[in-house]
Design a protein around this nucleic acid. Structure first.
Lengths: 106, 106
DNA sequence: TTCCTTTATCGTATCTTTACGATAAAGATA
DNA sequence: TATCTTTATCGTAAAGATACGATAAAGGAA
């Protein structure tokens, strides 16, 4: 009973929660902001921007990749990351729709 | 080193992450959807809608209240909850702005 | 008052998350 | 080849999240 139970919830809500979870840490928000600002694949430099140990940053990148919000490829000795446009659009759409229904009611 | 470190991150990103965390569980998303649909304070019935034990639902409600997304008041033997319009607007604004910058880059 | 209904809280078990040092892996460079 | 740089992974420690049964608390109803 530790993990979030999914039985009985709508797939839409499960996916929305998963995306929100990916955004639920300042480091991951900052990483996405950095990638969006560059508007391109970024090789290196992410570790320098995030105030955490290199191993921890790598872990956060892995999580963002797992959910599908970013893509990564290896370029020589470095790794390059960029925003996964398709998934980000999907995520943005789901969250946006959710927020609009929240607004509408008030 | 277990809790998310906040030192070195922007307050905006910290708050955004906190809001996202509140949305990072299907039950909490479903609760908010239900409250928004009713468009009013809901007394009782939330427990019946969420497929989890009563104690667990109460825990999720507490978390949503802690972050400020909902308000609660006691009405006789029941508790009534409704969406906290002000905070929801703030949250919606922050998330919306974040998502728009994500879109813009791609 | 006594009982019922409803919700909050307590206690607890278990899994997840976060963090970092240490180390491995893979190219680049000398 | 030997070394340096960069990143991923391993190992591990500590705190958080999730779930639920049990119980308390607080009104309402009989």
């Amino acid at each position: 009973m530790p993990t979030a139970k999914t039985d009985g919830f709508k797939n839409q809500d499960i996916r929305l929660a998963e995306i929100a979870k990916a955004l639920s840490h300042p480091a991951r928000v900052a990483i996405l902001r950095h990638l969006a600002k560059r508007n391109d694949c970024v090789c290196g430099e992410i570790v320098d921007v995030i105030p955490l140990a290199q191993a921890t940053v790598s872990q956060h990148l892995k999580e963002l990749k797992r959910v599908g919000l970013i893509k990564g490829e290896i370029d020589g000795p470095r790794s390059c990351y960029c925003i996964n446009t398709d998934t980000m659009k999907q995520a943005s759409g789901m969250l946006g729709e959710f927020l609009s229904t929240m607004k509408k009611c008030c």
